[in-house]
Design a protein around this nucleic acid. Structure first.
Lengths: 204, 204
DNA sequence: GTCTATACACAGATAGAC
DNA sequence: GTCTATCTGTGTATAGAC
């Protein structure tokens, strides 16, 4: 890698990092190209040497996130495939899944919020629903597994999975950015675990 | 009311109606003043004779919504006060509450989405959390009631109520605008009822 | 590769005629 | 009250020097 190319990579990286900060502070739509370049200590024009537009930058951030996520998974699970035969009726396993999802949202907040915000901007499309179902696809597979095992589910697996995902993500968007809600991560995850395990009023 | 004032009221009403349509189609932030006036068949300048800005218009829509909601409640319940002693562990009462909330979202979708979208634009603030807790305050009171009655809750009432509200609203935002999800209102409400009553896997 | 300077598009808002 | 015409601010994107 030549010295110029290296410098370029450095600038691209600085712009991405600045973008994450700005998206979190101002919101995706409110963030101007100049906000990003200023925060990165670069000039306006420099932006377009690396990204064609703000949306293109967001896609790049999304890819980075997926790359990191893949790396994380690979570290724990060599197959790279999440096994479907998890028992969500088991408190520990359910909790582990919720905690993992919560942690992913926490550590990728800027990108998740930006994605969410930009998706919201085009309501007519079913983009929000597709996003939700694809995000909760793994959950749905677990529920399918339970159903095949003989458990009696309370509704269509896809819909139940979507409802869980909706609760989780909306709560994350409300709680995580501010930090003023006053509940710890553990408290939130515990509460959701119990809620999903036994319903509103715990049986046991 | 003079003939000019009457005409003015008519224009204001037309602008509001057009705004609702446009917000739903294009999203709040994407909707331009000219989109609204064009859809209402009025001129650009006319807008500012009635509203100071797009945000002010949204506030007016919000007030209309509240006014209608109050009228609905008053029709059913003369006190205007929603009683706190509802038993959410009773399937029928729980379902009724969820169905009512779902219906409110459906019939006020444009305003709810616009509000949500504009709130999203300022992330640093805890606006989302405050909105969520205030929207679910009635729910929280019901949970407080259960707790006082002796039921063992699975977490802080405020947090549980927020989780329920999060699930409901996020699902509404995903399903209602598109109509492509393929689930009927009844199916959604039934599923949520069971999920909240007995947890992921129904006990009975 | 990165900078400065600038062109261009567009939405918000106002002024004045009718 | 409502219209047409217009001004102004602001953000995106490009051109060309270094």
């Amino acid at each position: 890698m030549g010295v110029r190319a290296e410098q370029a990579a450095q600038t691209a990286s600085a712009l991405k990092q600045a973008a994450r900060e700005q998206f979190l502070q101002r919101g995706y739509l409110n963030t101007k190209i100049t906000d990003i370049t200023a925060a990165a200590g670069r000039s306006t024009g420099s932006f377009y040497d690396h990204f064609g537009s703000k949306d293109e930058l967001l896609q790049a951030l999304l890819e980075d996130m997926h790359r990191d996520a893949r790396a994380d998974v690979t570290g724990q699970d060599l197959s790279g495939q999440h096994p479907a035969d998890h028992d969500l009726t088991d408190r520990a396993q359910l909790r582990a899944h919720l905690a993992a999802a919560w942690q992913v949202m926490r550590s990728n907040l800027p990108v998740m919020m930006a994605l969410f915000e930009s998706g919201m901007a085009e309501p007519g499309s079913d983009r929000a629903w597709r996003q939700l179902t694809s995000d909760t696809d793994m959950l749905r597979r677990h529920l399918d597994f339970l159903q095949q095992r003989g458990d009696r589910l309370l509704g269509p697996p896809e819909l139940v999975a979507a409802a869980m995902g909706a609760m989780l993500s909306m709560l994350a968007y409300s709680i995580l950015p501010g930090g003023t809600a006053g509940y710890s991560d553990d408290q939130v995850v515990d509460t959701l675990t119990e809620l999903l395990r036994t319903g509103l009023v715990g049986g046991s």
